[in-house]
Write a protein that binds this DNA or RNA. Sequence first.
DNA 1: GCAATATACTAGGACATCCAAGGGTTTGGA
DNA 2: TCCAAACCCTTGGATGTCCTAGTATATTGC
Lengths: 169, 169
Amino acid sequence: MGTPLPRDPIADAQRNWERHGWGDVAAPMAAITAIMRTQQILLARIETVLKPFGLTFARYELLALLSFARSGALPMNKASALLQVHPTSVTNAVDRLEKAGLVARSPHPTDGRTTLIELTAEGRTLAKKATAALNSEVFGNSGFGADDVDHLIRVLGTFRRDAGDFTEE
Amino acid sequence: MGTPLPRDPIADAQRNWERHGWGDVAAPMAAITAIMRTQQILLARIETVLKPFGLTFARYELLALLSFARSGALPMNKASALLQVHPTSVTNAVDRLEKAGLVARSPHPTDGRTTLIELTAEGRTLAKKATAALNSEVFGNSGFGADDVDHLIRVLGTFRRDAGDFTEE
DNA sequence: GCAATATACTAGGACATCCAAGGGTTTGGA
DNA sequence: TCCAAACCCTTGGATGTCCTAGTATATTGC
């Protein structure tokens, strides 16, 4: 990053699109590019808050998911589905969390193919602390107004449903 | 990806947040998580369209940026600033694009520290084709209504400005 | 019951992003 | 004038994501 630019590069791109005769898709292009950039900004903020805890966002998401599991344990494939990431990404995250003593692998009692992941005591404690930090430093200061938050949840929810993330609603 | 989930995992997370007494930040948390997931979906769509061209999104963005440059060439640091990515990411992209014969490095005429990147003829042609494909297959079918597109552009634009991306109004 | 198919996890590889550090070039103040 | 500070790019390392392939275990169908 660095110094702010004098002008919005995405608005410039939208003007370039229009200038080249692609006016019919210039606005969606700008919206999509803005989503990409916003994600980048938010991820950087989150990672900054999590760094003191020795966590990354991917690892934090797994800890948070486990902390809400009724039984306290989840099969890897379940975690992969709920976090909507590739199974190998979960393997990667669990490897590192396990090495840090925050989660533990255990065999599934009845299905030999399945591995359960479970929070350790330290994992549960760290998840709580990290959540508190994120709540106060990122989510509590998102930079979005309440109306915009509601709108984002609704619009992006519809988008995700249409994209095949889930069927409910 | 796999089968659609029966329920929206982000809505579930929001309920979990509320259930744990973090109701005041549950909605922003859900909105931010939805942005992360939406970015992931959009990026996957874009990469799928670009794959036949041998391009990734990062490389495409650089090609597109160069194709709009008046002089046809840009300093690396300028590209880094406009694309809002780390200089090393530009180095990485240019390395691969150069190896593919799509861009060329050249020394800056007056500043020995600076390297200019310029589209080759093939690079310019490929950028055009890739843009046409993205326009018709992704941007022209974004899944967002026109009103939602306008709203996203406005809300995310404000967010990015407040985050220090640019100063213009 | 046994073979074929499906499912679960992991290993290896390609890419992207960032940070830290290093080497060359310019600029600016003493 | 001259040297320190600032700037530009690259290298090397850590992480995350995905894909493909391989191994092990379950399930299904004949």
